[in-house]
Design a protein around this nucleic acid. Structure first.
Length: 355
DNA sequence: AATATTTGACCGCG
DNA sequence: CGCGGTCAAATATT
């Protein structure tokens, strides 16, 4: 099983890399051709990243997960900074590198949370709906020193019902009001995939909800819980790094994973499904229990997106999901009771009266 | 009525 | 003590 699968892996690895190169070529052509649509480019970018992710996975499989992974990860992180539309923010990378070192030093035994920053530019002021597959509820807004526009704070709608501690912040860039910087923190532990999920978010639905505000000042997060993912595969993005800390597989408490083939079968089935499951990052690790569901948004929603990463001092930061083209949600994974306990300090969620 | 947003108060951290 | 983040009452929306 070793030798056989190994060669298969190697072949696939090379294949993925080659594909990535070819796609990149196409992308370059596309960039020069005025006829090419931005959607098309976005699609190419998506596929390129997908290829690399696959390649990464293959590396993990064949090499010692630890070393190869972290090494590769760094590269990935670096390159993520140079993603297509985000060139203007490359200056971050240097600092990040330093932080990275610090962080690896101070990395404790457990991951706390992740923190992804993506920049979303919606060229048409309209339809700022940056759906990311989760329902958010605004709980605050603050004027930030030096920032022209206020920052909005959102938390997962299911925070109370499902103890989902994911939050995000949305900040409009002062230089370019069409760009929003969205910072995701925490991970979604809510699951409404297996239950009753309003399957496809009809476009009309979305329009209805955004008719209200004539001039959208912010990307509106509606309560559409969508996710039209059939069943089996969910794909997670980011948190390539969290894996480092949770090398020991959890027990999947949640269903939804049962239909997945295991091992090579799983991988190969995935690879066969070239199509849109572009995303995933941890085939062998169970997607955390009740993990969020990912869905694919209609291409019409695509915007230019630049991904950026930001290391928050003491906390681990993850990035990845360079391709938010499909509005896949940058949700960190890895949830666990333990984790909740870890996160809690931030939220006095148990009735304040108890103290 | 239930649920979402707004907005000033509150609070912890640096 | 100021800033950034969260709470929670008031208000708006569905």
């Amino acid at each position: 099983m070793d030798t056989a699968s190994k060669s298969w892996e190697q072949k696939s690895l090379v294949g993925e890399i080659i594909e990535g190169m070819e796609l990149a070529q196409q992308l370059r052509l596309s960039l020069n051709a005025t006829s090419a649509s931005s959607e098309n480019r976005e699609f190419l970018v998506q596929r390129i990243l997908t290829s690399y992710e696959k390649a990464l996975l293959l590396l993990q499989l064949s090499g010692s997960p630890q070393t190869s992974q972290s090494a590769v990860l760094q590269d990935f992180r670096m390159s993520a900074n140079t993603s297509p539309c985000g060139d203007d923010y490359n200056h971050m990378s240097f600092k990040d590198h330093q932080d990275l070192q610090e962080i690896s030093k101070k990395r404790k035994s457990m991951a706390k949370w992740t923190d992804h920053v993506i920049r979303v530019s919606s060229e048409n002021g309209i339809e700022g709906s940056q759906e990311d597959g989760h329902s958010w509820r605004k709980y605050g807004q603050k004027d930030i020193l030096g920032a022209k526009y206020p920052r909005s704070y959102y938390r997962c709608t299911f925070r109370n019902t499902q103890s989902c501690w994911a939050t995000k912040q949305v900040q409009r860039a002062d230089e370019d009001p069409t760009i929003f910087e969205i910072t995701y923190k925490g991970k979604h532990t809510c699951s409404h995939g297996s239950n009753s999920v309003p399957p496809p978010p009809s476009p009309e639905q979305q329009e209805q909800k955004r008719h209200k505000r004539e001039n959208v000042s912010e990307p509106q997060q509606s309560q559409v819980t969508q996710m039209s993912f059939p069943t089996n595969l969910r794909v997670d993005t980011e948190n390539l790094e969290d894996k480092e800390m949770m090398e020991s597989p959890f027990s999947f408490t949640s269903t939804s994973f049962g239909c997945m083939p295991s091992g090579d079968d799983f991988l190969s089935s995935m690879f066969d499904n070239e199509n849109f499951f572009g995303y995933f990052s941890q085939p062998l690790l169970p997607p955390a229990a009740g993990e969020s569901n990912y869905y694919l948004a209609p291409p019409s929603q695509m915007r230019n997106i630049a991904v950026n990463e930001q290391l928050s001092g003491s906390d681990l930061t993850e990035i990845i999901s360079a391709t938010n083209s499909r509005t896949n949600s940058p949700i960190p994974d890895m949830d666990f009771p333990l984790d909740l306990v870890e996160l809690d300090p931030n939220f006095p969620f148990d009735t304040p009266g108890f103290f």
